[in-house]
Amino acid sequence: MNPKEDNLLIEEIKSGKVEAYSALVDKYKRMAYTLALSITKHSEDAEEVAQDAFVKAYKNLNTFKGKSKFSTWLYQIIYRTALSKVRIKKHFNQNIDDLNEIDINLDSYQIDHLERFDKKKIIKIAISKLKEDEAFILVLYYYQELSIEEISKTTELSSSNVKVKLHRARKNMLAILQKLMNGKAQSLIQA
């Protein structure tokens, strides 16, 4: 489904066909949940944030003019909602400026997957160890392949700020990956 099809669905919803919204929810729920999880680091919170974001998007659908993609607009709502949730709960606010202080606590499930050198799980763990906004930006940039300008629009940060954050996020991500592959994780596996 391309952005034009999204806009057609939105027009249907605006004209009163509420059930058409389920198609949009189905299409974006996994991405929404993944993005929410990258910020909240907690599955229940992420589910709540993703649901809230979809409801907020619906409530404000009459203000969506279709100038940008629906997905960009939705990700913007997810970003705001998730950050707000994190700020309130102070659930995860680990500063990883000093990577030596990272405490990579791998549970048995994670170690099991590291042993198998499962890329999917490694990246999942690494994302969970990143700061919330860095994880969000990396997912949008590398997975969704959004441009700097689109990320800027989504996060309401300036382009130069996004570039700085992206640079920092990459650096931190690589350091975490290195630790996971060669450091503490290996010693845990060998233990």
Binding site: K29, A32, Y33, A50, Y142
Partner: peptide, 22 residues
């Protein structure tokens, strides 16, 4: 690495819950 990401799956009744609220 990111190309190998599998999107996380929310609960099975995610859409139902959203549509109920909506």
């Amino acid at each position: 690495l990111f190309s190998s990401i599998e999107l996380e799956e929310p609960s099975a009744d995610f859409t139902k819950k959203v549509m109920h609220t909506v």
